[in-house]
Design a protein around this nucleic acid. Structure first.
Length: 411
RNA sequence: GCGGGUGUCGCCAAGCGGUAAAGGCCCCGGAUUGUGGUUCCGGUAUACGUGGGUUCGAUUCCCAUCAUCCGCCCCA
């Protein structure tokens, strides 16, 4: 028979990688629990219109990357990101009436139809948090510092935090007019993307990667326009306070006036955490404030802030973990006794493997050594008869016998 | 959607026009029937991505196709 392989851009996660994923997940859950965030699990697919309205009709994600299919009357789409579904649930489940703030976290697979490359899969996994109900720089600071705490506890090296303030919709009107006026003389020289965005979404022109275009945006009169900050006094005060808190927390960051991000829903604060160890797709975490999204999805006007991080990219930054494998390996030709002992040890929360091969002790020891277990229990005829165990320490090959009761008592 | 690289056993990998397609790792068996991973011997496997073409002859050259990797775009 012909082999069937997995779809393009998907991954089987197993073996060593699986334990890395588990380590990351349990670390994340711990940090979320300690900060009093609750888990939310939303469906892997939603009605297509949720993403069209939530993520934005002009985004690449919605325009060319969604897995959409029709069943019955409605069009469905595999979720390309987590926030829209969480916001939908927030509205649908009446969380707007919960005491503020509402603090949620999630983790799970996301789907985007793109050409796979290093750090980019068609099915990938995100972990993220959303904080609803506060429009304060304190909320932004908590979100960012939790991300940094999380990376810190995983001891990840070479991470850089970049932050920017893109203001409110009104601020961006100011930006649009000012920027368009300044850029118009150079319009013909810009790349096609930038020319298109000149009308549809001028802010996005800023993160153009074409060197010639960058030079134009770096011209003195344009640069000074960007740096004097087009946002309102209130937005600037918000950002200043956020900066103060981050500095006080000794979280190093850089203001990047070019950081605008590709999702339409952001307001005020946006940020990104990148690693120099990731290749071209170097963003490991990204997020920001989205004060209009809840309302846009039919809920009461509710400010919110959140972020998501890519688990594949995160896991790829992790070094080798300590072997969190077996505590005991049981070598035995007395299965009844061996299983009884294993059950008692497992009840003490230990990881125990019983050799099931029925082979001679020499072979069983070989397998035991390969298993990496630090201790071997030898349970032969004599031990079974006397309810004893022989414990062998692999590191120094020492070995002694004691009663089963003594062993259990010593744990 | 657009560029470039690569496809030889489960993994790594030699061969680059000519007999039965090296080698290493892993796995299995034996030396060693209650004591180990490093020794020695042996063994398993539908391995040249697929389809055409050139040739007396193709794993090797050409074309196409598929897969995969890297990059662009965009994002986590």
């Amino acid at each position: 028979m012909e082999k069937i392989q997995r779809p393009k851009g998907t991954q089987d996660i197993f073996g060593k990688d699986a334990s890395r994923w588990q380590a990351v997940e349990s670390c994340f859950r711990k940090i979320m629990r300690q900060a009093h965030y609750q888990e939310i699990r939303t469906p892997a697919f939603e009605y297509t219109e949720l993403f069209k309205r939530g993520v934005g009709e002009t985004t690449d994600i919605v325009n060319k990357e969604m897995y959409t299919f029709e069943k019955g009357e409605r069009s469905l789409t595999l979720r390309p990101e987590g926030t829209a579904g969480v916001v939908r649930s927030y509205v649908e489940q009446g969380m707007s009436r919960w005491p503020k703030p509402v603090k949620l976290y999630y983790m799970g697979p996301m789907f985007r139809y793109e050409r796979p490359q290093a750090g980019r899969q068609r099915q990938f996994h995100q972990m993220g948090l959303e904080l609803f109900g506060l429009d304060t720089p304190e909320a932004d600071a908590e979100a960012i510092s939790l991300a940094m705490d999380f990376f810190g506890s995983l001891e990840l090296p070479n991470l850089a935090l970049e932050v920017n303030n893109i203001g409110t919709a009104q601020c961006r009107e100011v930006f649009k007019q000012g920027f368009q006026t300044l850029v118009t003389p150079y319009l013909a020289k810009l790349c096609q993307d930038c020319q298109n965005r000149f009308h549809s979404n001028p802010l996005r022109m800023l993160d153009c990667k074409i060197p010639a275009d960058k030079e134009i945006y770096d011209l003195p009169e344009i640069k000074s326009f960007l740096e004097k900050d087009f946002t309102s006094d209130e937005c600037q005060a918000h950002f200043a306070k956020l900066s103060d808190i981050l500095s006080a927390l000794e979280i190093p960051f850089k203001r990047n006036y070019r950081l605008v991000r590709g999702l339409d829903y952001y307001t005020k604060t946006v940020f990104e955490i990148t690693s120099t160890h990731l290749g071209a797709q170097n963003a490991v975490c990204g997020g920001g404030r989205y004060n209009n999204l809840v309302e846009q999805l039919g809920g009461p006007a509710t400010p919110a802030v959140g972020w998501a991080l890519g688990m594949e990219r995160l896991v790829s930054l992790l070094g080798d973990l300590e072997n969190a494998g077996l505590d005991y390996y049981i070598v035995s030709d007395q299965p009844e006794y061996a299983f009884k002992v294993a059950k008692l040890l497992r009840a003490k929360n230990l990881a125990v493997e019983v050799n099931l091969s029925g082979k001679n002790f020499g072979k069983q020891f070989e397998t035991a050594a390969k298993s990496g277990a630090p201790k071997i229990l030898v349970l032969g005829e004599a031990e079974a008869k006397n309810q004893q165990v022989t414990v062998k320490i692999m590191a120094d090959a020492s070995q002694n016998s004691l009663s089963l009761r003594e062993l259990l008592g010593s744990l």
